[in-house]
Design a binder for these strands. Structure first.
Length: 879
RNA sequence: GCCAGGGUGGCGAAAUUGGCAGACGCGCCAGACUUAGGAUCUGGUGGAGCAAUCCUUAGGGGUUCGAGUCCCCUCCCUGGUACCA
């Protein structure tokens, strides 16, 4: 390819300014206690979602959000804020480990190389990060505090009285291990044989692993869990004060899945209970292992009654049968001799099914009667008890009351098995059986005539008075499965002695992973760390925990560490935390930009950890992220998702080599709204590059020798009136647009500004300076260079453009003295006229009605009405 | 299925409280300067029509003097979710 002449010498000026910024640490954010710390400046914390440094390097999607935050950071600095704008690496992760399995190269080496590559790319784009705060989650200096936070969680419990986490020492019950926020449980987990590890629910998509798309099976295993369910209520409630997209809040609310209703107790008909092992026979340990909300509470398991959860207690009279999940612990005791064989067969059939098969909505309902019966607590009716796999063990109590008249699933089941259907809510007009909406209760002696909402309240009160049920709130959210069978992650600061776990002291941190030759999973579910015999053996009678933490652990608190990244005494210094995470808003980080893919994973986990640390008195605010913005995905030029497979991946460095970093940045922002998905276009980059070249040529011209010199057209003269007006309109627009993160329209405005001056024979230096300041956050290299050049001939108080204060527009320059008004007849534009600004309505009407064009159109008609919108439009209605 | 967000020129997109639809950019057309143009500058560019004029914001209906914007219905796209009782 032939070397094309550059429209302006970005290849020289960009590295020059990047070096300059580096050398004088231009973007360093001083901490409290630093000599240059200024307590009078307000703080502003602007955070990017830090990347996982993959081998592929950055693609053009990464820098989209990074450019947006960089513009805001540079803008806020010019507005006098001390800006914390850091970058780091989410460095633990599966790809480096899998690469190690293939090649034997230690993940630490792979990771280090990838980080170097990422950093080179980011620096070449000219981001104003404070690189002195760079962190990597895989460094012992970092993960020792990840482990320390785990210890805080482990050594805490959630006190329902205070609705807060408290040190475990305040717990007065018998067994602290039963209430810790980090606990061990034998739970059915998502086991991925291919990856050799378990996965969190959130990491499983359609029965396959999110990473790699490998099959995932359910299997009971002993795992570390974090009791995030304790915070379900607060995680929903405290979203309210946050400046997040409503869609993301909703996503989190739905994921947490709060349902209000009642637990209703159905007595099992006495004669129907088959004598068997009583539940009392279960050991205490077994009960404790039953993982919080993952299985029904112990109370629900009684030989004499079955508890169900329902959001529609008002339909209790319509409950004509019950269904238990096949795995429900009561099934054995309930099943009659006659049904024993059928039940066993059904349970076996279910157990062999994969999750995918079980949740296949299209499939027909299946189930089998247990032969037992229960009593409907409302009407004393004897109802059959069935088991069916459409009832899930993992939600509610694992048992339901079936109301086929008002639940589609129950209806389908009842029809298939010939179970009775009784309507208890008057259907809305035209609704047939199966009506699931709200209405008026019927066939329900206690509730007849009551609308659904009232009927719910009444029946719950009645159930509570009679000891047959209680008001209850349930959540879909499950506790967080926190252990992984991997090598490349944080080891737990835990040892096992006599079959019991105990925490290591803080003084023993960090716990570093052992050196290993072989990173392969063992295939048995034993983590790779189990191969490190020496490492495991902690003492005579204690061994180390061999699981590691999931990748989320490091990213749960990295934004905290950025506040004080080199602190060797604390995870973050008290003063630094108070400064950067304080302020008047409900949450700590002022602006957080990243992809939607983290809407429920990272953002929920981080909020959870943050709340625990807040409850324990380590943080100033209960929420981490005040304003959240999701950038949209950038597609390839072909409109498809960028991937190697389609060959449509764009490398930022290629774009920068041809058009420069400023063009790259500006194009990324000019493409369209930040939040929107949009395709890449090299022609678009070229267009933006032309715009920047025009800016360059406003200030510079080529002399005879072909060198760029300050243009003779640049003169220290006053702006013409219209130029001044445009300048102030541009200040206003660009300022408002940056605040709103509407960078595409900010750039449009600057294009208009530049177009105006491109034609001017004389370029007033004040107009050029203003343009450079407005454009600086977007194109920092170009504007820095031109600013310096202007200073050569027209010295300015600000030697460097980054020393400039952001301008304010003067509204006085924006007022018009004339208004061009649109003339409409019957709503259609027919003409225009110029009127003095704020002309009296009567005057405008007369002017409109005497307009020849209007007269022509209303000739022979009667004017019914004249609508005047001040300074804008007149609409004459005539017929 | 349910929830959320979208649908505006050939393309990316603009459009305060309802008030000139298509700013800005790409592409395209024409011109200027040029040995040259894939540089730069100037003008044009939603569609139909010689024109006056008519049509046009996925489609249909409604409210209004006036609707891209508000209301109802339908279709399509994108993301999330999936028997959650």
């Amino acid at each position: 390819m032939s070397e094309r002449r550059k429209p302006y010498p970005f290849d020289q000026i960009e590295p020059k300014w990047q070096t300059d910024w580096d050398e004088r640490s231009a973007f360093r954010a001083p901490n409290p206690g630093d000599p240059d710390f200024d307590p009078n400046r307000p703080k502003f914390y602007i955070l990017d979602m830090f990347p996982y440094p993959s081998g592929a390097g950055l693609h053009v999607g990464h820098p989209e959000g990074y450019t947006a935050t960089d513009i805001v950071a540079r803008y806020k600095r010019m507005r006098g804020f001390t800006v914390l704008h850091p970058m780091g690496w989410d460095a633990f992760g599966l790809p480096a480990e899998q690469y190690a399995i293939k090649t034997g190269q230690h993940p630490a080496i792979t990771t280090r190389e990838n980080i170097a590559k990422f950093k080179t790319q980011l620096k070449r784009i000219g981001f104003s990060y404070d690189w002195s705060r760079e962190i990597s989650t895989a460094e012992p200096d970092y993960f020792r505090w990840t482990q320390w936070i785990f210890l805080q969680i482990y050594n805490s419990w959630f006190n329902p009285e205070t609705n807060c986490a408290e040190p475990i020492s305040t717990y007065t019950g018998d067994d602290p291990n039963s209430v810790r926020l980090a606990y061990v449980a034998e739970v059915p987990v998502n086991w991925c044989p291919e990856l050799g590890t378990v996965l969190a629910n959130e990491e499983v998509i359609d029965g396959k692993s999110e990473v790699g798309g490998f099959p995932v099976v359910r299997r009971p295993m002993r795992q570390w869990m974090l009791r995030i369910t304790a915070y379900a209520q607060r995680l929903i409630g405290e979203l309210d004060g946050l400046d997040w997209p409503e869609g993301i809040k909703l996503l989190q609310r739905n994921w947490i899945g709060q349902s209000e209703g009642a637990v209703v107790r159905f007595a099992v008909t006495p004669g129907d209970v088959v004598a068997g092992e009583g539940v009392a026979g279960r050991s205490v340990d077994e009960r404790l292992l039953s993982a919080g909300d993952c299985v029904p509470s112990y109370n629900s398991v009684s030989a004499h009654s079955i508890e169900v959860f329902t959001t529609r207690p008002d339909t209790l009279y319509g409950a004509t049968y019950m269904v238990l999940a096949p795995e429900h612990p009561l099934v054995d005791q309930l099943t009659s001799e006659a049904q024993r064989e059928a039940v066993a067969a059904y349970r076996e059939q279910i157990a062999s099914k994969s999750d995918l098969e079980r949740t296949d909505l299209a499939k027909e309902k299946t189930g089998v009667a247990t032969g037992a019966f229960a009593v409907n607590p409302a009407n004393g009716e004897r109802v059959p008890i069935w088991i069916a796999d459409y009832v899930l063990m993992g939600y509610g109590t694992g048992a339901i009351m079936a109301v086929p008249a008002h639940d589609e699933r129950d209806l389908e089941f009842a029809r298939k098995f010939g179970l009775p259907i009784r309507e208890v809510v008057q259907p809305a007009e035209g609704e047939a059986i199966g009506f699931t909406g709200d209405g008026v209760a019927i066939n329900s002696p206690l509730l007849n005539g009551l609308p659904t909402a009232e009927a719910k309240q009444k029946i719950i009160s009645w159930l509570e008075e009679n000891g047959r049920g209680t008001r209850n709130i349930r959540f879909k959210l499950r506790d967080w499965l926190f252990s992984r069978q991997r090598y490349w992650g944080e080891p737990f600061p835990i040892v096992w002695r006599d079959g019991k776990h105990e925490a290591l002291g803080e003084s023993e941190l960090p716990i570093t992973p052992p050196a290993l030759e072989d990173f392969k999973p063992t295939g048995t579910g034993e983590p790779p760390l189990a191969k490190a015999w020496d490492w495991i053996r902690y003492s005579e009678n204690a061994t180390r925990e061999t699981n590691t933490m999931p990748q989320w652990a490091g990213s749960c608190w990295y934004y905290l560490r950025f506040c004080d990244p080199r602190n060797a005494e604390r995870f973050v210094g008290i003063e630094a935390e108070r400064h950067w995470m304080g302020g008047s808003q409900p949450a700590a980080v002022d602006l957080y930009v990243g992809g939607t893919e983290h809407a429920v994973l990272h953002l929920l986990y981080a909020r959870f950890w943050h709340k625990v640390l807040f409850d324990l008195g380590h943080l100033s605010k209960p929420e981490p992220f005040q304003r959240l913005v999701n950038q949209g995905m950038i597609l390839g030029e072909d409109g498809r998702k960028m991937s190697k497979r389609w060959g449509n991946v764009v490398d930022p460095l290629d774009v920068i080599a041809e058009y420069g970093a400023d063009s790259f940045r500006c194009y990324e922002m000019f493409m369209g709204p930040l939040e929107q998905m949009k395709p890449w276009s090299m022609k678009g980059v070229e267009g933006v590059s032309r715009f920047l070249a025009r800016v360059w040529r406003l200030v510079m011209e080529e002399n005879q020798a072909g060198d760029w010199v300050l243009s003779g057209a640049v003169q220290d003269v006053a702006l013409e009136k219209r130029q001044r007006k445009l300048m102030h309109a541009s200040i206003k627009k660009v300022t408002e647009d940056i605040e709103a993160l509407a960078f595409n329209t900010a750039i449009s405005q600057m294009m208009v500004y530049v177009n105006e001056f491109t034609n001017a024979p004389v370029k007033p230096v004040a107009a050029l300076r203003m343009l450079l300041v407005l454009l600086n956050p977007f194109a920092p290299h170009l504007t820095s260079e031109l600013w310096a050049t202007l200073n050569g001939q027209f010295p300015d108080a600000a030697r460097d453009i980054t020393d400039c204060a952001w301008p304010m527009h003067d509204p006085a320059y924006l007022v018009e003295d004339e208004a061009e008004m649109v003339l409409q007849v019957n709503g259609k534009v027919r003409d225009k006229m110029t009127m003095p600004i704020d002309a009296p309505q009567a005057e405008v009407e007369v002017a409109a009605l005497t307009n020849p064009k209007v007269q022509e159109l209303i000739a022979g008609k009667t004017v019914r009405k004249v609508v005047v919108v001040q300074n804008k439009l007149v609409n004459v209605v005539a017929n």
